[in-house]
């Protein structure tokens, strides 16, 4: 899978999900249907390209489409 195809897949899948805006890494890997290490390479580039952004509670990290959802919500409010 090339980068453009992976980005398209992720963006389409995340935009469809209306109920939440933050996703665990393994949810993204599942969308790409890749093993974690292969998925990580593509997902990292999406962060560098500013398609995705990290969200961290301090103990757990999640990913979201850049600019979507709450910017500074407490962890429990997000779930």
């Amino acid at each position: 899978m090339d980068q453009a195809e992976a980005t398209e897949k992720i963006v389409a899948a995340l935009q469809k999900k209306k109920s939440k805006t933050k996703f665990y890494f393994n949810e993204l890997a599942k969308i790409l249907d890749l093993k974690p290490r292969a998925a990580k390479k593509l997902i990292n580039i999406m962060v560098t390209d500013e398609v995705l952004e990290y969200w961290s509670s301090g103990s757990t990290s999640l990913y979201g489409l850049k600019g979507v959802g709450k910017q500074a919500a407490a962890e429990h409010e997000d779930e």
Partner: peptide, 10 residues
């Protein structure tokens, strides 16, 4: 309130 998107690039 803890957590957020703050971080440094990359």
């Amino acid at each position: 309130k803890h957590g957020g998107i703050v971080g440094v690039f990359g």
